[in-house]
Nucleic acid binder design. Structure first.
Length: 390
RNA sequence: GGGUAGGUGCCCGAGCGGUUAAAGGGGGAAGACUGUAAAUCUUCUGGCUUACGCCUACGUUGGUUCGAACCCAACCCUGCCCA
């Protein structure tokens, strides 16, 4: 095991707050593996790079010999974390949650060492909790404390509803810490309040309070909002290599330094051309979640496809024109059969009129035309997608 | 429980008897320009094999009317004030 200052040096990297560093130092100094908690709510089946930021920090702890407790919030997911939300979360069914939990943990092990990770479901204790106990816990948090939270405060000020069950969320998350006896809890910076509640509850149960460690939130592809599935601005860990590469290439330049730090744990070399820097970012990410070969392939494909705009020499999905031979029908069918997307006639018409639909580089502007659909020709559908005619 | 203000398209919001598929913004899409970045400009943003035609849509259900997002009634939901 590394010395305490060496460990601290690694662990502090990329964090927003550590509350407190002194406590962390003391815990580390005992020389025993610490219990590091991260709670995740399986509200969607996929993990994205935003989640991976926390997982990477866990991985660091793991490599330093500490013990990871990954809490699957099957119960808390039913409530929905109100952190940073301006509206109540939609309710999920328990079956959804369980199904999500399965794929979720699978994906978490792309980052974490499976053998050194303890996975627990918080439903296992909450399901059995007597109502008296719930009341007792509630007595420990005041309404004023809750109302100090930015998200609740705003909602109250704006006249947006706040459901009472949402107020339970921090208490439940805090109780998780008591149950798993965590020494350190990791979370995004929006989790600060929730994690601090955990400290309070632990103290009241006569335990040593956990250290609160928060990490920056990773903005999504739009560069503004936090990466999230529901906003569609995410890069999934299981995204296909080319998709992952392409998504990363579309992030705003200003975000690159942050992505380097949080996604790769590296410092961006600002002397590099921004585009080259972004390509390397994308490639490294593909290497991490796929392979070196895949990354190489992505880069070559990218250069051909977008830098040289040489669609003819790029691997494209095949599409065979069937009975409908007019432009509108062909495009609609191509979207459906190749990309599994149902576009309305209006959608397709819009693309055609916008000049998006191109056959071998020639814009097709008449929805009803029936051009010669020669085999091997390249049909461009939109900015990112094209097919080869078979 | 009482009073009061509301519930409109993906979101916010205007409309308050016909010309309303519903202003404006946001978000999204496409094109041009590029580095599939940013910025900018243009266009589009209910459905129907585009049709001055039909269907669906303004919380729900009924009603008034030649005609309703708009008027009436009941119901459901939310905010605020009072209890």
């Amino acid at each position: 095991m590394l010395s305490v200052p060496e460990q601290l040096d690694i662990l502090k990297r990329g964090t927003v707050t550590i509350h407190s560093e002194k406590e962390l130092t003391e815990k580390l100094a005992r020389g025993k593996p610490l219990r590091i908690k991260l709670g995740v709510d399986p509200t969607s089946p996929d993990i994205h790079l935003g989640h991976a930021v926390g997982l990477r920090k866990l991985r660091q702890f793991q490599e330093l010999g500490h013990h990871i407790v990954l809490i699957i919030g099957d119960f808390t997911a039913m409530i929905g974390d109100p952190s940073g939300r301006s509206t109540t979360r939609p309710a999920l069914t328990y079956e959804d949650v369980l199904a999500n939990a399965k794929t979720y943990t699978e994906q978490a092990f792309l980052v974490l060492d499976r053998d050194k990770t303890e996975v627990v479901f918080n439903g296992s204790w909450f399901k059995e909790m007597p109502f008296m106990e719930v009341i007792r816990l509630n007595a420990r948090v005041t309404l004023q404390q809750m109302l100090q939270r930015e998200d609740f405060k705003n909602r109250v000020a704006n006249g947006t509803e706040v459901r009472l069950h949402e107020l339970q969320y921090p208490i439940m998350q805090g109780w998780d810490s008591v149950v798993v006896r965590s020494d350190v809890e990791i979370g995004g910076s929006d989790q600060l309040f929730n994690i601090l509640v955990g400290r309070d509850l632990q103290k009241e149960e006569g335990m040593e309070p956990q250290v609160c460690m928060t990490l920056p939130l990773l903005e999504g592809l739009d560069g503004v909002k936090k990466m999230s599935k529901s906003l569609g601005n995410y890069v999934g860990l299981t995204d296909a290599p080319k998709e992952m590469f392409g998504k990363l290439m579309s992030i705003p330049d200003e975000l690159m330094a942050k992505y380097y730090l949080l996604v790769l744990g590296e410092v961006l070399d600002t002397s590099m051309h921004p585009m080259e820097a972004k390509k390397q970012l994308a490639a490294k990410c593909v290497i991490t979640y796929h392979s070196e070969a895949a990354a190489q392939d992505c880069r070559e494909d990218w250069d051909l496809r977008f830098s040289k705009r040489d669609l003819a020499n790029v691997e494209l999905p095949l599409f065979t024109v069937s009975d409908r031979r007019d432009v509108l029908g062909v495009v609609q069918h191509a979207y459906l059969s190749v990309f599994d997307q149902t576009l309305s006639g209006g959608d397709v018409r819009r693309l055609i009129q916008g000049g998006s639909i191109q056959l071998n580089g020639e814009k097709l502007t008449d929805p009803k035309a029936e051009p010669a659909w020669g085999a091997g020709a390249v049909l461009k559908l939109d900015k990112k997608r094209s097919v080869r005619l078979g």
